[in-house]
Write a protein that binds this DNA or RNA. Structure first.
Lengths: 345, 345
DNA sequence: CCAATAAATGGGAACGCTCCCATAAAATAA
DNA sequence: TTATTTTATGGGAGCGTTCCCATTTATTGG
């Protein structure tokens, strides 16, 4: 049980002045006697006084808190975004409260209530793979609390978004595989409810089309992103009568898992089968063989999302903007697609 | 600018009843007419009502917020702890606010003020490598706000702590190197201000002593944990007239970096030089050669810290306990110390 | 049918602070 | 010296709740 915390009233009593004067001294208000101010400041220090942001937030109806909602923390992607967002938020005088929904729609909805109750001034969110209904997020718009989406965005809501050019990233990844001579390229993708799945799939399809490679539905596997299932699907691909000579995985964890399976099958990477991922996770450069991938500017994503959110927070609801910031991806060639490639990084 | 948020007063006005009745309906108080309650609940739902935790926290002087202070987010260790802590906190009805001090004492002190102003109910903290004075943390004790340390603890403060058995972990790691036949074992350690550095160093020394291996100060390098400096020190070690045949690194990022350098020097791992780390980072199993390491129960650490903190929060200050929970490490043998070892994991 | 008890409701204070308005004290102008 | 401005201070309301006490309304017993 917390003790009584020193309040401006305690200081006022001690100094025999009014709480108003103490408040002024503490907030650097011009109308205070320098001497009084000094006394107050010294006593405040001595009494371990710390202003109660709860009370201030209540008055100003501004909590200086930004909520961050992410679907999971298993891959390194979301933790990295959160870290970058936290830093940028701090620079802007906000602190963050983070909720993670474990890819569950129900949890996401529940977390939404917590955010509301905590009086967040704004929200940056990446939805779960299950989220199809967005009423729980639209509440925020109605209440005049801005939202910025990143990575996994809601297409039907007209709000700011920060994404990477998934289509083009996928296109470049697949084209890279083609240019290294691969002809039967499989694609391990996520659920079609996520726009990133759709966009990356389209990039994949269009790259094949451009190079006149026929699309084989057998080689396109859409799964729920639970990493332990990758084994099954990769084994399945390898067991086809006409197996793929390359795999484009929707993200690096998937690709890394695929590499493990392929190594167990004694196949040579990239000669027998090449692999490319998406996101450039920390481990991708370290794994053997090192993983070619499309890098995303993850820190930039977290930072931009916060910046766009802070702008919205400071705007009246009528002046809300709904710009979508599209960041570019970059092809990182490593040994999983090109033997003995000397990596830039 | 946020709009006016629905309050119990708005609901009361609409229904022509008093705010007290609305409050009772909303909090499941026994003394409300079932019918009134139903009306209130329905209208609350319709008006997107959400209780204002700020106001409630102000009254109850309980914010249901736990502060987490960590020194950095570059290694995967602290993010993992934070994620685990967040989950456990949520289970206990708390949300967390995280601050990261970037290994700066000044920032740590500043963050401390934010925590206080945010009225956290408790704090779990791992100090920076620079922190030698603990006044900023002792304030919390005086105010009756409990602290639990983890990983990098403050020895002079008598509060609960969650650590791993660093001494024994180091001892086992070094003994493992000795048992694989290594005789000149270097140690890359952190600054001596951190108790983990001291304890791991002692484990290292005692393991050598037990096996009658002379200590060579030339082989013990203490550095500030900025990962880019590892290159310099490892190169230095390799250039010695009598270079080491093994390295025990204080943590996995250091070990991984060391592996990169050693590979550049065309030395064979583990034949020419073996490496062992500490913590079992995600990348350690994936790197080539895979890294032997002492695994720590990271999730367990975050979870325990929160549990111990919550217990303290619910106790009166006079009954505060100061138990130290020591978790065990486990030797994970991989290819950086034993050629072609079939890993358990 | 009226007193006594139970159930339901209303109103005020309080949490710690800021902000506005009123007042008091000091400094300047007439 | 008195009026006027400036500077410094005090007091009250309000932010959105909960909690306590008082009051009203409904229910039960004699």
């Amino acid at each position: 049980m917390k003790k009584h915390q020193t309040t401006i009233f305690d200081i006022a009593r001690e100094l025999n002045i009014s709480k108003s004067t103490v408040s002024r001294a503490l907030t650097n208000h011009p109308n205070v006697n320098e001497h009084t101010k000094k006394l107050v400041l010294e006593l405040a220090e001595k009494m371990d006084y710390q202003r109660n942001m709860l009370a201030i937030s209540l008055i100003t109806s501004k909590s200086n808190t930004i909520g961050i909602m992410v679907p999971e923390f298993r891959s390194s992607y979301f933790p990295k975004v959160v870290v970058a967002a936290q830093e940028e938020a701090a620079l802007n005088g906000y602190h963050i409260i983070v909720s993670q929904s474990n890819e569950s729609y129900e949890t996401e909805v529940a977390n939404t209530k917590v955010m509301l109750a905590s009086q967040v001034d704004g929200l940056i969110v990446s939805i779960t793979k299950e989220t199809l209904n967005f009423d729980h997020l639209k509440v925020f718009q109605r209440k005049g609390i801005p939202i910025v989406f990143f990575n996994r965005v809601c297409e039907e809501m007209i709000v700011p978004k920060v994404i990477v050019n998934d289509y083009e990233g996928a296109f470049k990844a697949v084209e890279h595989l083609i240019l290294t001579g691969k002809k039967r390229i499989a694609h391990l993708t996520g659920p079609s409810s996520l726009s990133i799945s759709k966009k990356r799939l389209n990039g994949y399809l269009d790259a094949l089309k451009k190079h006149d490679i026929p699309v084989d539905d057998e080689l396109i596997i859409s799964y729920d992103l639970s990493i332990n299932k990758v084994n099954i699907y990769v084994k399945h691909l390898l067991s086809l009568k006409n197996p793929p000579d390359a795999i484009f995985a929707i993200n690096d964890p998937t690709a890394i898992q695929a590499i493990q399976v392929i190594k167990q099958h004694q196949l040579k990477i990239p000669e027998d089968i090449a692999i490319i991922g998406f996101s450039d996770d920390y481990a991708s450069a370290l794994i053997e063989p090192s993983l070619s991938t499309m890098s995303q500017p993850i820190e930039e994503i977290g930072k931009s999302a916060i910046q766009m959110l802070v702008e919205q927070i400071n705007r009246d609801v009528e002046n809300w903007k709904a710009t979508t910031k599209i960041l570019e991806t970059e092809l990182i060639i490593r040994n999983s697609t090109v033997k003995n490639h000397i990596a830039k990084y």
